[in-house]
Write a protein that binds this DNA or RNA. Sequence first.
DNA 1: AAAGATTGATCCCTCAATCTTT
DNA 2: AAAGATTGAGGGATCAATCTTT
Lengths: 168, 168
Amino acid sequence: MAYSAAVSKEPRWLDHEERAAWIAMAGIVFALPAALDAQLQRDAGISHFEYTVLAALSEADDRSLRMSYLADLANGSLSRLSHVVKRLERQDWVKRTPDPDDGRYTVATLTEAGWDKVVATAPGHVEAVRQLVLDPLTKAQVRHLKEIGTRVTGALGIDLEAEGLRRS
Amino acid sequence: MAYSAAVSKEPRWLDHEERAAWIAMAGIVFALPAALDAQLQRDAGISHFEYTVLAALSEADDRSLRMSYLADLANGSLSRLSHVVKRLERQDWVKRTPDPDDGRYTVATLTEAGWDKVVATAPGHVEAVRQLVLDPLTKAQVRHLKEIGTRVTGALGIDLEAEGLRRS
DNA sequence: AAAGATTGATCCCTCAATCTTT
DNA sequence: AAAGATTGAGGGATCAATCTTT
């Protein structure tokens, strides 16, 4: 991700409307993850990242995904995922096996207990997403949000098609 | 922040448009902080939270704020702020003094070197915000984003008036 | 006793180094 | 040698406990 270094003397400062939009966006971006984490931690004892991992596996064929692909889906590094899956494995929610087709890959699979955990956790999480994000918006604003999100995630280099496989 | 516990058997699942909007929002919310942190870390050697603290002080009267108020502005806990300010103090960017009016408060003040750090860092940060968020949007979308942000931050219990004091 | 602030322990993430399979 | 994955060390965030001032 290359930001053209601000070499010119005068940066393009934000006008009034841009500034207001950015302040609102910043508020969301830095407070929403904490709020979602808090709900999941309180009601299910897991982090949002852990939930994302379990949910992604629950929607995959055979409830299985390669570690590297799963890391991409969950927007995390492979190292982070490896640490997290180690913990999830201790709880017997996930198990790991080498990929028979290519031994370099590791395949993570959701166990029956892991499936139950997702089923038990999903409704509360969806409800939190509704209350914090979707319910406060009009139908038109939901549409606008989708379009804005498409453009910004594009600038961030995120592939929404792939993301579509998962998430509540 | 009270989420009504999902006691009803059937949660209200997301329809197609809601799901698309949420996936886009989730992409932003979990990738944008990392992107902004990366720019600041690379170009200035500080985290986004540290930048927020320095920037908030730079815009305050006497370049000074009480710790508890500053923690609110920066969307962080007082404990987190205390740890961070300790580090900023080591770099001589901030200094702390007891509030003369009420000794329970601690007042954080930006030093001259801290001011210079903000001046040197702000243009690159604003440029990143432009490239990742504002430039990809039309003027109408910037307006929509402001309105959406107002509603969602409202649901999150954030006071945007107070926030307006800071942020690039 | 309450409010503001700080501290230390613990947990989690990041980064670099390493290991395994191809 | 390259790709995928794991590991351990180091740094920052969180939480509970503590300290200070009112």
